[in-house]
Nucleic acid binder design. Structure first.
Lengths: 206, 186
DNA sequence: GCTTTAAAAAGTAACGT
DNA sequence: ACGTTACTTTGCAAAGC
């Protein structure tokens, strides 16, 4: 009886320490990525659920914390790519991806793939592009989505290509190298997606 | 119209068996030309057959895993070659070791492009994993037959996890039905 | 959980030329 | 800008850490 009480106490105590550490990590990573408070809060709520539903045994606190930030950013409509998240995490990319799928599956979080348009404001801002090209980029993506060219392609790559294409269309100076730098997408991919976006646009006219 | 089920091609068959005899893999590695054995890395000895092309993992317990074969017949052929090689080395091998197919990987073509975003929602997020940022295929876990299907934007698919040849056919028929029911095919 | 084997799908990336 | 190679995902067995 006393042992059981001790065990419960120990469990509760260790979960509290676990939570403290995780919340600190979530705060640190969210800050490093410039994510708003609501994302931190959502990530914390997800982490508490993971802890309550005993998803932690077998996984690292850091890995689950990172997955919560990745999921929360997407749910809030301000997605960060897995590479960006991995940059501020202590856990390697492959483990984050594995843990993320596990958390989403176990907690039945209905997280859908990021919409490429959600990456546009940040990339456009980083490249100091006008609001007009930002709107152009989103419109290119909307058109491409209607034509069904999104399937299987990285939302980040599509967004990077759209921003590049929009800058050219509005006569603003940018290079594939600059877009590649801010989006962390290879120039080859930007070129490939760029051609597809323009093709989808031409199909509109033709 | 061509039937998607007719486009099914078996790409890989994984099977397990055993010769009912313990083996000295160190000695076997010496006697079997082309055998790879790195016990520090992996406990199994790797042996590849050329015709049919397959790879076998041979363990100290005498259990063997065969993978890479393009058909169930090829699995039997490849393992038959291995059994004979072992007998040739004076290693006693059971008369007809039982061979169990563990997994069959097949590919097929639905013949139409697929809108994976719509499909993810239509098939039900609980049975689907679709993370285009990481992998271009949509992963769908089917209940009956119990297989996993990878669906791509091109309409090409991969069926894995089945143990019978019929599983792939049933799976293709089932997925075509479900996608059509969703109005998302063609 | 990891290690090793095999094969397909399509996207992405990093080499070298 | 090519081509090549290689990595991502799925499924499975084996023995052992």
């Amino acid at each position: 009886r006393l042992r059981k009480w001790n065990e419960r106490f120990r469990t509760r105590d260790s979960k509290e320490r676990n939570l403290k550490q995780a919340l600190g990590e979530i705060d640190r990573m969210a800050s490093a990525q410039g994510l708003p408070d609501n994302v931190r809060e959502t990530a914390s709520v997800i982490y508490r659920r993971a802890l309550d539903e005993d998803l932690l045994p077998g996984r690292s606190i850091e890995g689950v914390s990172t997955s919560c930030v990745y999921a929360a950013a997407r749910m809030a409509g301000v997605p960060r790519s897995l590479d960006e998240i991995a940059d501020v995490s202590r856990v390697e990319k492959a483990e984050i991806a594995r843990t993320y799928r596990y958390v989403v599956r176990e907690l039945k979080l209905e997280v859908k793939p990021a919409d490429p348009e959600q990456y546009v404001p940040r990339f456009a801002s980083d490249l100091e592009l006008s609001e007009e090209s930002e709107m152009r980029a989103k419109s290119l993506l909307r058109n491409a989505k209607e034509k069904g060219v999104h399937s299987g392609k990285s939302p980040v790559g599509l967004a990077a290509a759209a921003v590049y294409a929009a800058a050219l269309l509005t006569n603003e100076k940018t290079t594939q190298a600059a877009v590649s730098e801010v989006a962390d997408i290879s120039e080859v991919t930007i070129r490939n997606r760029y051609h597809e976006l323009l093709e989808a646009e031409d199909g509109l006219v033709a | 119209m061509t039937n998607p089920a007719d486009s099914i091609e078996i790409q890989n068959v994984v099977a397990s068996t055993g010769i009912g005899q313990e083996l000295d893999l160190e000695a076997l590695a010496e006697d079997l030309p082309g055998a790879d054995f790195n016990p520090d890395n992996f406990p199994g000895l790797v042996y590849r057959t050329q015709e049919p092309k397959a790879a076998a993992l041979i363990f100290r317990s005498g259990k063997i895993v065969c993978t890479g074969a393009k058909s169930i017949d090829d699995v039997h052929e490849a393992l038959g070659i291995i059994f004979e090689k072992l007998r040739g080395l004076q290693i006693p091998v059971e008369d007809d070791p039982e061979i169990t197919v563990q997994n069959i990987v097949s590919s097929a073509d639905l013949g139409h492009n697929l809108n994976l975003n719509a499909l993810a929602i239509g098939l039900g997020l609980e049975d689907v994993e679709y993370e285009p940022e990481q992998f271009p295929g949509l992963v769908y876990r089917m209940d009956e037959p119990e297989v996993v299907i990878l669906l791509f934007g091109s309409g090409k698919i991969v069926i894995t996890g089945g143990k019978r040849t019929d599983d792939a056919e049933e799976a293709v028929e089932e997925i075509v039905e479900r996608i059509e029911g969703l109005g998302l095919l063609g």
